[in-house]
Nucleic acid binder design. Structure first.
Lengths: 143, 143
DNA sequence: ATGTAATTGAAACAGTGAATCAATTTCAAT
DNA sequence: ATTGAAATTGATTCACTGTTTCAATTACAT
């Protein structure tokens, strides 16, 4: 239990720094969020609304946005919905997204990352993070 | 006039092949669409609703989706809205974004694109489009 | 223990895009 | 050129996603 201690303290730091409070709801949502790689607010709502003390959908939205501000999550728009990606889960994986069926494949490519660094250096930038999404058709949808 | 002849005939081909009709509205929307790199339905509506014979918003949506099916446009979700990209303006630019001052530098890198194709092929995907954003500090903000 | 500032949940609201349907328009076949 | 079936249009309604509102509740510094 609690290899997620790092993320929990990261959230507590953010809360303290901004005069926000650690609530039962925020803890529950964080625990559920850290277990998944990426979720929508609806998915998380269906998952958590079964539990004993009900958590409202508005709170889910607010909390996932809070996670984004705290750097724990990253929002990504896909097919009229917002996916909240777990930043700690991705050692640095990017996404292949099928525009047909919505399937998402995660990948990691060191060569691409090296070239990104090179592009940044040539332009006087130092990279903090990046987002790479490849959209196309998977084998099943291409037929 | 009409260096866009290629796109116009591409649309006519698609219409004929699917027993669809070439209407005044579709011609107007196509002309406006080919002039821009990427638009939302709302932008196009504001642009075209000034014109003499009014074009309804529903028609804009339907027609932009038609362009996607005909291969002239590609839909992309961005900040809760759908951007319709003009495929014929395919000079693909990626972005370096300074998290300090917000400066955006556009770049293009063939080597990265080649590696993207390779990743996609290994996963059975064929790429239609991609989005690459590098976030970091520019030279001025790093001091 | 207390006061106040933040949080919650239900409901109302707002924005985007799709579906409906009667009236209109295209276009192929006369 | 006329006709008629099929496609299209646009106003409206509808569905879905996400945010805002607000009274009641809760966390937490004092």
């Amino acid at each position: 239990m609690n290899k997620n201690h790092k993320e929990i303290t990261a959230l507590k730091d953010h809360l303290a720094k901004h005069h926000l409070k650690l609530t039962r709801q925020r803890e529950h949502i964080l625990n559920a969020f850290l277990r998944s790689e990426h979720v929508t607010a609806e998915q998380m709502y269906r998952q958590l609304s079964k539990k004993d003390p009900h958590i409202g959908l508005a709170t889910i939205y607010r909390t996932l946005n809070l996670f984004c501000e705290a750097g724990l999550a990253q929002a990504r728009h896909f097919r009229s919905q917002t996916q909240y990606d777990n930043v700690s889960h991705k050692g640095h994986h990017d996404h292949l997204i099928c525009t047909g069926c919505g399937k998402i494949v995660e990948f990691e490519n060191c060569d691409i990352e090296r070239l990104q660094e090179e592009v940044a250096r040539r332009n006087g930038f130092t990279i903090q993070t990046h987002k790479l999404e490849l959209y196309g058709l998977c084998a099943a949808c291409r037929r």
